[in-house]
């Protein structure tokens, strides 16, 4: 039983680092989406991947590497703060764009324009 615990304690930082790397890669994927998608509203969707999954996974990874519970609490505070304010700023962005009259691309048009200006 003690050996199992020792193995777990040794493996924990490695899992944490792997989860951090996963979070970084997810942030990269979200950025690629932001660069590829054709108009503002669709880019908002890609950016929310970074705001939710990349953040959650990277913070869980850091929590596994944390030396003390105080650090875990700080990570949890960052996570809760982002999940409470992230949708607010996303909605503020979408609402401001809608109020200013930015028209979303609907349906097939988005697809063809996305292919044209994907670089």
């Amino acid at each position: 039983m003690n050996e199992l615990l020792a193995i777990l304690l040794n493996v924990k930082p490695v899992i944490g680092a792997a989860l951090c790397l996963t979070g970084g890669v997810l942030a990269l994927i979200g950025t690629i989406g932001v660069l590829r998608f054709p108009d503002f509203y669709t880019r908002l969707h890609a950016a929310s991947v970074t705001d939710t999954s990349a953040l959650t996974i990277a913070l869980i990874g850091m929590a596994l590497m944390a030396p003390s519970w105080l650090i875990v609490f700080k990570l949890a505070a960052i996570w809760a703060f982002f999940f409470l304010t992230g949708p607010t700023s996303s909605h503020a962005l979408a609402n401001a764009a809608h109020t200013a009259g930015v028209e979303p691309l609907i349906g097939e048009r988005a697809r063809s324009r996305g292919r044209g200006s994907s670089s």
């Binding site: 979200g30 989406g33 669709t42 890609a46 991947v49 979303p104 988005a110 996305g114």
Partner: peptide, 16 residues
């Protein structure tokens, strides 16, 4: 959404 970001051809179909 991750699949949509990485697919080679963009097959999104946005709607309001």
């Amino acid at each position: 959404v991750i699949k949509a970001c990485l697919r080679a051809n963009l097959d999104i179909n946005p709607a309001l």
